[in-house]
Computed example of a mutant assay.
Amino acid sequence: MTLQRRILVLAAFVVLLAAVAVYSFLRASSRADEKNQTQAGGPQITRGAVSLAPAGGGRRIVFRNMAWGPHRDELATVPAAAPEGARTASGVSCLRFHAAAGAGICLQADKSGIQDGYRAVVLDAGLKEVSAHALAGIPTRARVSPGGHLAAWTVFVGGDSYAGTNFSTRTSVLDLRTGRLDASLEDFTILKDGKPYRSADVNFWGVTFAADERTFYATLATGGRTHLVRGDLAGRTVTTLRENVECPSLSPDGTRLVFKKRVPDLPAEAPWRLYALDLASGAETPLAEERSVDDQVVWTDARTVVYSLPGDFGADLYAVPADGSGAPARLMASALAPAFLG
């Protein structure tokens, strides 16, 4: 064997040893992270299959796991009857997520290009990617229609908080049956106070869908005010209904909206309270949650809504009755963006 060949063999052996050492270190670190997470009182998390299918076996919650460790930011699931129980993590990471009727929308970081960005990924019931769409900004809201036929998402194009006024959003709606993408609700005809309306400062966010897979509600901001709008996807119109409504969420029976409302004299950085709106009568009812909630609530059933508040690892989920009674209670620690399935 020549000297040059001996040197090449030795170099290859050194590289192999280094690779083995790095793998062993990462493996040990991963196990240590999982062990430390359990010792710190966090939830037990294991890798496994996560499904969005409306199968039997009881209701379940699929959500973004915020617990620190190797499965942080992955979609995970727990039985709805045991929300603080052991979690099954999917390996699929999302910043924002929602699902219904076997279809999911996952807003995630995209590191495949020269510059980091974001994308909206349509997921099937097995969390496999069906399609992907580049996003123009930072993910903030996501929704799937009750029948699983439509998906909507909102991103911050400029700014990163709803608390102030210096921000710009873009809201898109995708028909999962046909693949048609309405890239921006700003292209829809706006009927404000019964008249066509146009303005350069229009922003939309927080879509929620009705069961007819055509009607939706959302927030429209213009002229320093926010408005609840009802949208018609077939007619490509939105109509203003009332002021000071943000991030509406429609009840399963389609009769009520829970939304966040700006309340005078609250701090500028925490200005909201949760309210319920009866669509027939127009009556508003404050919910029992007195903290400022910057989230679009999710209905667990006809009586209860769930939302996020800041927690030790980013966010915790809380539940409160939607009729103004009772008191808020923590549902899950270290969790965000839940979908109640089954």
Rank of each mutant, 00 (worst) to 15 (best):
2 T>I: 06
4 Q>Y: 04
4 Q>G: 01
14 V>E: 03
14 V>F: 11
15 V>Y: 04
17 L>E: 02
20 V>Q: 10
26 L>N: 10
30 S>W: 08
32 A>V: 06
33 D>H: 11
41 G>H: 07
42 G>E: 13
44 Q>M: 13
48 G>M: 03
50 V>C: 05
52 L>K: 06
56 G>P: 10
58 G>K: 12
61 I>G: 03
64 R>I: 15
67 A>E: 14
68 W>C: 00
72 R>K: 14
72 R>H: 04
74 E>R: 00
75 L>V: 03
76 A>F: 07
82 A>C: 00
85 G>Q: 04
91 G>D: 09
91 G>H: 06
91 G>I: 04
95 L>P: 01
100 A>M: 05
101 A>E: 10
102 G>I: 13
102 G>Q: 11
108 Q>E: 09
110 D>S: 10
112 S>D: 12
114 I>W: 01
114 I>G: 08
117 G>I: 15
120 A>F: 06
122 V>C: 03
129 E>N: 05
130 V>N: 04
133 H>E: 07
135 L>V: 05
136 A>V: 15
136 A>T: 15
138 I>V: 14
139 P>V: 04
141 R>F: 02
141 R>W: 03
147 G>H: 07
152 A>I: 09
153 W>R: 03
154 T>I: 01
154 T>M: 02
156 F>G: 08
160 D>L: 10
160 D>A: 14
161 S>K: 14
161 S>V: 14
168 S>R: 01
174 L>T: 06
177 R>N: 09
178 T>A: 11
180 R>E: 13
181 L>D: 02
182 D>L: 12
186 E>C: 08
187 D>P: 00
191 L>F: 09
197 Y>W: 10
198 R>F: 00
198 R>V: 10
201 D>G: 09
201 D>R: 11
206 G>N: 07
208 T>E: 02
209 F>D: 06
216 F>P: 01
220 L>P: 00
223 G>A: 02
223 G>E: 01
224 G>A: 03
225 R>S: 05
241 L>F: 05
242 R>W: 00
242 R>E: 12
246 E>T: 09
246 E>W: 00
247 C>E: 15
248 P>F: 04
250 L>A: 04
250 L>W: 01
255 T>A: 15
262 R>Y: 01
262 R>T: 06
263 V>E: 04
268 A>D: 07
271 P>F: 10
276 A>P: 05
278 D>M: 09
279 L>F: 00
283 A>K: 10
287 L>M: 13
290 E>P: 09
293 V>G: 03
293 V>P: 00
296 Q>V: 10
298 V>I: 10
299 W>H: 13
300 T>C: 00
302 A>D: 14
303 R>A: 15
306 V>R: 12
307 Y>R: 11
307 Y>K: 09
308 S>Y: 05
310 P>E: 11
314 G>T: 14
319 A>Q: 15
321 P>Y: 14
323 D>K: 12
324 G>N: 04
325 S>R: 13
333 A>R: 13
333 A>M: 06
338 P>Q: 13
